[in-house]
Simulated scan of single mutants.
Amino acid sequence: MARPEAPVDRTVLARAELADFLRARRATAGMTYRQMSDLMFGMPSKTTFERAASGASVPVLETVEAYVQLTVTKEEEFNGSTDAAMDQARKLWIKARRATRAPYYLHKAPDPALISNRADFSRALRDQHVWAGCPSPGEMSQMSGPGMLPKTTAHRIIAGRTLPVTPTQAIAFLKACYVQAPEALEWLAAAIRVFADSRDHPDWGEAHAHVQEQLAKNRDDPPARLLRAVA
């Protein structure tokens, strides 16, 4: 008979919520950790999957994603809700990372509408990085795509020593901080306010045109905050 699984470590609530989510999925799928690992040819290992659902630490995102992929049920496949399960897993993972890495004073995501100068922009990017669970420069470079955000550049932005020099680089940084498309446009509008008149950064003028184009596509219901941002 298999040894009963140890109770979830509830020292950190957000970590426990992620562990509960993962354990519930495994129970529904009726799989053992050994079976899960075997399906992945040992990578992640049985022990890694067990630790991911222990609540004692925050697993790497790849392990969480593999956990969800392996526990997709026939009902989820039939209902097309697999993406929703993966999205929930990522949100719980980010929340757990934030709970263990973010400073006590950061209670919400930064608001790009409040950015009015370069210092604001730098501080907001750094706060967004923390709000995303402090991904490493290497993780950010990988998430943003080949050549889009070098590790050294990500490190310098996180340290407050530089700012994204092009809209593409700014979007790459935000993508690596899990900022989704609607919010990314607001961030882009904030960056335009900072850089649009700078002769050193001519690409931001083109970015302004892009934002205006997006607004035109949503002319019937334009985002009010975005309209104010680029006015």
Rank of each mutant, 00 (worst) to 15 (best):
Y67R: 08
K95S: 13
W187C: 04
D203T: 11
P222R: 12
R97M: 09
T166C: 05
A16Q: 12
G145T: 05
S116M: 09
A196Q: 14
L226R: 12
E50F: 03
S45E: 02
K151I: 00
G133F: 05
V64G: 04
K95Y: 01
K91V: 08
V211A: 02
L13A: 13
L22C: 03
H107T: 13
W204D: 03
R219E: 12
R118G: 14
L174G: 05
M86F: 01
D203G: 02
A170E: 09
R98L: 02
Q35I: 00
S54Y: 07
T47V: 10
I157S: 02
N218M: 11
D38P: 02
S141D: 09
P223C: 03
L125H: 10
P112C: 06
E206D: 12
A216N: 12
S57D: 11
R25I: 00
A2L: 10
H107W: 09
L70E: 05
C177H: 08
I115Y: 08
R101W: 00
M40E: 14
A19H: 08
E17V: 02
R123Y: 02
T47N: 10
A184R: 15
G147M: 06
N218V: 00
A181N: 12
A132G: 10
I192N: 13
P110C: 03
L13E: 14
S141R: 11
T82R: 15
A85N: 08
E62R: 15
L185M: 13
A132W: 11
T100A: 01
A14E: 15
D197G: 13
Q35T: 10
L226F: 07
G160D: 09
R51K: 14
A184T: 14
S45P: 08
W93M: 06
C134V: 07
Q180P: 02
T71H: 09
V64T: 12
R25Y: 01
T28G: 01
Q128N: 04
P4R: 13
R219G: 00
G80R: 11
G205V: 09
A16D: 09
K175F: 02
L149Q: 11
V165D: 14
R15C: 10
L215N: 06
A29W: 10
Q35P: 04
L18R: 09
P146G: 00
A29D: 10
R123I: 04
T11C: 00
Q214I: 05
A113Y: 05
H201C: 03
K91T: 12
G138H: 08
V58S: 02
A170N: 09
G145M: 03
K91R: 15
H107C: 04
R23W: 02
Y104S: 13
F78K: 15
I115A: 02
T73V: 06
I157P: 11
P223M: 04
T28M: 03
P222W: 08
V68T: 09
L39D: 14
R101Q: 10
P137R: 08
A29V: 06
P44D: 04
D127N: 11
E76Q: 15
W204T: 05
E5H: 10
R123M: 06
A96P: 15
E213V: 00
F195Y: 15
M1Y: 07
S57M: 06
A102V: 04
G205D: 07
